[in-house]
Computed example of a mutant assay.
Amino acid sequence: MTTKKIKRREELATMLKRDFSTIYRWLRAYKQGGITSLLTVKKAPGKTPHILPEVREKLIKKLQEPEGETSYGKLQIWLEKECGIKVSYKVVHDLVHYKLKSYLFRPKTPKQ
């Protein structure tokens, strides 16, 4: 079995079916920090949350109150007044409904 020697980065990119810029990044990482740097898996920083953990805890306590809140709009206003953060209706809805899996209090209407 013969081994083909790669002489140019473009050849390596073609052989590995990777973009040239990827090969460049790999080689740069290896030159800067050796094999350890090349093999380190980096975690993307991600998006900064709109509602910080301490405010989220206040919101959870608010949602647990017996009388409860009746609308996401009211929660949006509460967050601005009580916690000093201005977030969109969608941010409040998505956090409460999807992430916290909480449902707002709906007063029962009497049957007629």
Rank of each mutant, 00 (worst) to 15 (best):
Met1Tyr: 12
Met1Cys: 00
Thr2Gly: 00
Thr2His: 09
Thr2Phe: 01
Thr3Asn: 01
Thr3Ser: 02
Lys4Asp: 08
Lys4Pro: 01
Ile6Lys: 01
Ile6Asn: 05
Lys7Glu: 10
Lys7Thr: 12
Arg9Leu: 02
Glu10Gln: 03
Leu12Gly: 05
Leu12Ile: 00
Thr14Arg: 13
Thr14Cys: 06
Lys17Ser: 14
Lys17Ile: 00
Arg18Gly: 00
Arg18Asn: 02
Arg18Pro: 01
Asp19Ile: 01
Asp19Lys: 13
Phe20Ile: 14
Thr22Glu: 02
Thr22Leu: 06
Ile23Met: 08
Tyr24Ser: 04
Arg25Cys: 00
Arg25Thr: 04
Leu27Asn: 09
Arg28His: 10
Ala29Glu: 11
Ala29Asp: 06
Ala29Tyr: 02
Tyr30Ala: 09
Tyr30Ile: 03
Tyr30Gly: 01
Tyr30Glu: 03
Tyr30Lys: 09
Gln32Ser: 07
Gln32Tyr: 04
Gln32Thr: 11
Gly33Glu: 02
Gly33Lys: 08
Gly34Ala: 11
Gly34Ile: 06
Thr36Cys: 05
Thr36Gly: 14
Thr36Tyr: 13
Ser37Arg: 08
Ser37Glu: 11
Leu38Asp: 03
Leu39Glu: 02
Thr40Gln: 15
Lys42Tyr: 11
Lys42Phe: 08
Lys42Ser: 04
Gly46Thr: 05
Thr48Asp: 05
Thr48Glu: 14
Thr48Gln: 14
Ile51Ala: 05
Pro53Arg: 07
Pro53Leu: 06
Glu54His: 10
Glu54Thr: 14
Glu54Gln: 14
Glu54Met: 04
Val55Asn: 15
Val55Gln: 12
Val55Thr: 15
Arg56Trp: 06
Lys58Pro: 02
Lys58Ile: 07
Ile60Tyr: 09
Ile60Ala: 07
Lys62Met: 11
Lys62Asp: 06
Leu63Pro: 13
Gln64Phe: 04
Gln64Lys: 15
Gln64Trp: 04
Gly68Leu: 12
Glu69Leu: 12
Glu69Pro: 00
Ser71Met: 11
Tyr72Trp: 11
Tyr72His: 14
Tyr72Lys: 07
Gly73Trp: 11
Lys74Met: 14
Lys74Ile: 12
Leu75Thr: 06
Leu75Ile: 10
Gln76Ser: 08
Ile77Thr: 15
Trp78Leu: 11
Trp78Glu: 10
Trp78Pro: 13
Leu79Tyr: 10
Glu80Met: 10
Glu80Lys: 13
Glu80Ala: 12
Glu80Val: 00
Lys81Tyr: 03
Lys81Gly: 00
Gly84Gln: 01
Gly84Val: 00
Gly84Ala: 04
Ile85Asp: 01
Lys86Tyr: 07
Tyr89Phe: 14
Tyr89Met: 08
Lys90His: 10
Lys90Asp: 11
Lys90Gly: 00
Val91Asp: 03
Val91Phe: 03
Val92Trp: 08
His93Asp: 06
His93Tyr: 14
Asp94Lys: 12
Asp94Asn: 12
Asp94Gln: 11
Val96His: 00
Lys99Ile: 04
Lys101Ala: 05
Ser102Gln: 03
Ser102Arg: 07
Leu104His: 02
Leu104Thr: 03
Phe105Gln: 06
Phe105Tyr: 06
Phe105Val: 04
Arg106His: 12
Lys108Met: 01
Thr109Tyr: 03
Thr109Pro: 02
Pro110Arg: 12
Pro110Glu: 11
Gln112Cys: 01
